[in-house]
Amino acid sequence: MHAFDIDAVRLALPFLWSGMITSLTLLAIAMTGGILLGTVIAMLRLSAPRAVAAIAAGYVNGLRSVPLIMVIFWFYLLVPLIIGRPVGAFVSAVIAFTLFEAAYYSEIIRAGIQGVSRGQMAAAQAAGLSRLQAYRLVVLPQAFRRMTPILLTQSIALFQDTSLVYVIGLHDFMTAASITANREGRLIELYLFAAAIYLGLCLAASQLVQALKRRMATS
């Protein structure tokens, strides 16, 4: 065994950093897209005609019943088949994560919407707002305010899940660490470093969520 060599990490920092950028970009897009799509799905399940609501429910239950890693892999293989040209690992990962996370976000958002009193929708509609306006201006702002901590917690899980993109060869932070580890023969150093980074980021984020919850409880 070699001695513990932190230099291997130091030298690989630019490569690891570019991996982290990929991870964070994926997180940002999947989170934004997932929450937007999740909101639409939640509204469809609550307000659309029964057939449409059933399709939305099927979507959510279907995606929640398969492992994420499979969804990532499928989209990597399927998207080029469907549109007829390769789209690259990053785009297919973005699509897979967005669609997958939307299913989870939509359940959170649906509960959030149901937590807003029905009288609010009635009052908004009684004033002449359309159902969509009532959602946008009255119900969703209240629901999101209450849901923010849970949505952030789900996003922390999403950030950890982005490491699964190694199956399609996308160089996220985890993959970058793994490649460096094998190339330099410094498995312990690199995996420890990666673990420390994930731990630090996620711990900080969940502390933030806790602080937010406390602030909401007192206000």
């Binding site: 009193s117 009288g119 009635a122 509609q125 009684a126 004033a127 002449g128 707002l129």
Partner: peptide, 20 residues
């Protein structure tokens, strides 16, 4: 219906002001 509703004011038992 939205137009019709906009012509009639309604006041509820539990006020239903928008809390946000």
């Amino acid at each position: 219906l939205t137009r019709l509703r906009s012509r009639i004011g309604m006041v509820f038992q539990h006020f239903e002001l928008y809390p946000h």
